[in-house]
Amino acid sequence: MASNSPSPQRSTFDLLAAPAVAAMFLVAGYAALFVAPTERTMGDIQRIFYFHVPSAWTAFVAFFLGFIANIAYLLRRRQYWDWLAVSAAEVGLAFCTVVLITGPMWARPVWGIWWTWDARLTSTLVLWLLYLTYLLLRTLVDDPARRAIVSAVFGIFAFLDVPLVYMSIRWWRTQHPQPVIAGGEGSGLEPLMWRVFLLCWAALLGLMALLIRQRYRLECARHELAELSLAADERVAVGKGSGLSNS
């Protein structure tokens, strides 16, 4: 079992990656706050968009990674796929939480309300709940091999559900009166805004990769700990057994 668990040690890559992502964040934050032009109607509050939307995209990337890992686990049965799946889902959920927090922060001054059952908001909330459920399921199954299988199957179902959720909610919302009109959606971004936006997304993707790697390493360490304590227990049992036979 231990043979298929590549336990990544702290490398020079990690030592360099963290400061690099931090530097990217500084630049991206500065660009979003000072370089990007001020939006005409919403003013400065619009700047939250540079972290709100890329967080959503990053969450999708993480969930997609988790989906791939789920399938790979079922086909290949290597523990590291399971570790990657849980790491990606957790990090994706964190980014999704950022989306759900920054959204109302923007909505309150612009729309005058914290929350509305608009198609995009509701879909994001359901997405968040789906992955919360996935992580909840993992905490309720004790046997690691069993947990890996059932959570992989549920993870696949949850991911396949996302487009259906999105389509049905969009349809549901068009059936009902819209409380808020999010105007100017199709108007496109000014080129400088685009560049800042992509920079912010790159920073968030870097952070995502970093977090998934750390979370993955944690999972490795937990696994190693479980194996070691099992081995220690065995040794104690053997020691006791031999002690008894000696006396």
Binding site: V126, L129, L137, L164, S168, I169, W171
Partner: peptide
């Protein structure tokens, strides 16, 4: 069936995934 809290877990797993079915 393999989890703890299984009686409670099944509705939790199912209800959120069934969002599209419920809506339509």
């Amino acid at each position: 069936a393999h989890a703890r809290m299984r009686e409670l877990l099944l509705p939790v797993l199912l209800l959120i995934v069934l969002t599209p079915v419920l809506i339509s």
